[in-house]
Design a protein around this nucleic acid. Structure first.
Lengths: 298, 298
DNA sequence: CAGATCAATAGAGAACATCTATTGAAATGT
DNA sequence: ACATTTCAATAGATGTTCTCTATTGATCTG
């Protein structure tokens, strides 16, 4: 009864559109409209501001939405737990990760599948902000991102590893013969970097500026693949997390040179809903993460 | 849909009886039976062991029960919060307290009503164990009891005041002329005490034994009223919390003599469900409790 | 101003929940 | 040992509620 309606409300918040929300829930638009109306009647308060189309939620609607996330999330966790008690861990684990970390996700999924072969995975590439949204909307079970600005109480961070940075460049390019370089030096050469909306770019910009430099990327992209394919030609340079560069592969020409002064690093970790107890799939991921931490330790 | 069924399950856990549980939910017995069966079908697991009558819950049933408490509790909290947003605080605040603290509850309710006149109160006398049960079953919003052994994570304690003990006795009785007495001395005289299942009795027994005494109550009761009515005659003596004795009233004959060596005290406080956020009625009680703490401070 | 988009409404059919009455099984008392 | 009582499941009927299709009315867009 009520729970379905709360799901409608969550979908409406996600889609901002009665029709699309209805489709997402697998019902028709009148059904979803009626469901929301019933909620409003039962509370005696308007939850949604509409003027012939969806506008936004009333303050009361926002509060109900907050509760709905929790109640619906708990209900799913309950079902999943009981199912796991009977059939063992199965179902689909949904993870979203920022691009910087995409190459290390296999560490988690590979370990995970060894222990729970029945579980299927969905791995999404997303921005740090999107990850929070997805977590709040119960569209993913966990995120992988920076832990620096750990968020509201509704989401918990679990450290995985420290990300360190290297200069990716050809051996015969400027600085290419060094065993280590300083941030101040890196700041002097043209680089291929992520677009400024990404966390990685902001981190690198900060480090470059702290070293007195002025970041002058010769190429920007929101795709790591684009950056790497450029660098791979030997005619471009970039700053990347070490682990990512190592995974993408270094050629004979291409060198990954540690950047020092300062010896900067940022903590990467799992982001999961602060629900107690966790969904079984999520709990297993945390356990896997704990083991992965040892593998990934510097 | 689902939530009603979860309520059925909670009622069944409370009553241990399909018929009574149904009555408590305001439905007929077949309806409740069908509801439980639907839950079982939807999980694909038996939740209740029955052999022509209710026996107990399966392990899966216990887990579902745990989730049900949370989900149903959150749902009620949501409704209450939205209602409070529109109409201000109203409804019924349900409190259970151990007998020792019954006389100070008015401090809370009086303060509470000053701020929220629309709220109605139900105050139950209960044992410490019953309070936990009532809290778990969502039958009360808060308890007042000892905080010494703070319990599972599902319940949070909030300190209110320290309980100290005095000898209640007639002025012309043994020890009646003293300004203070030692526990060792109290242990030598016959007393009226609570029955041994109560927290207060266990506390006092402990203190008496620590002082080398052997508690020999001349009269036991599970009612403070009984104890006090005896002591009031001037022909019996008892050990009581100071605040309680003061509230029940001291006559000219009757004296409340502080007991020292050791200067024992136990912390009394609110017990509330560890739900975040709290129900509005509960949140207001915590706020009132915070203020009361100042009034009640030694 | 015409066309498109969006959400609410109306009405019909299906699905579901709840009730009364009864049955079958186990516990209790004589 | 047998009759009585207690308890929960089942059957069948009734009523509610949910969901759908089709449509309307309103607002935005070009």
């Amino acid at each position: 009864m009520v729970i379905d309606k709360l799901e409608y409300l969550l979908a409406l918040a996600r889609e901002g559109h009665f029709g699309r929300a209805a489709e997402a829930c697998g019902v028709t638009q009148p059904t979803l409209s009626a469901g929301v109306k019933q909620l409003e009647d039962s509370f005696g308060v308007l939850l949604v501001n509409r003027g012939s189309r969806f506008q936004n939620f009333t303050p009361e609607g926002e509060r109900v939405l907050e509760w709905a996330r929790r109640i619906v999330g708990d209900t799913r966790a309950m079902r999943e737990e009981i199912h796991a008690l009977k059939h063992g861990l199965s179902g689909r684990l949904r993870i979203a990760a920022i691009q910087t970390t995409l190459a290390m996700i296999e560490t988690l999924t590979t370990l995970y599948r060894e222990r729970h072969p029945e579980v299927q995975f969905t791995v999404l590439s997303a921005t740090a902000e999107e990850i929070f949204q997805l977590l709040e909307n119960l569209e993913i079970d966990a995120g992988v991102s920076y832990l620096d600005k750990e968020p509201a109480g509704r989401i918990t961070g679990i450290p995985l590893y420290r990300e360190r940075y290297c200069l990716l460049t050809a051996a015969d390019a400027p600085l290419g013969n060094r065993s280590k370089v300083k941030w101040a030096e890196v700041a002097q050469i043209p680089l291929c970097l992520m677009t400024p909306d990404t966390q990685l770019r902001q981190v690198i910009d900060g480090l470059l500026r702290d070293a007195g430099g002025d970041p002058r990327p010769s190429l920007e992209s929101n795709s790591m693949i684009v950056l790497y394919s450029h660098v791979r030609t030997g005619r471009w340079a970039s700053v990347m997390p070490f682990r990512l560069a190592a995974t993408l592969g270094l050629t004979e020409l291409l060198r990954a040179i540690p950047i020092v002064e300062p010896d900067a690093s940022h903590m990467i970790g799992l982001l999961i809903p602060s629900r107690q107890p966790m969904k079984p799939l999520t709990a297993a991921l945390v356990e896997v993460g704990r083991r992965a931490t040892q593998l990934l330790a510097d």
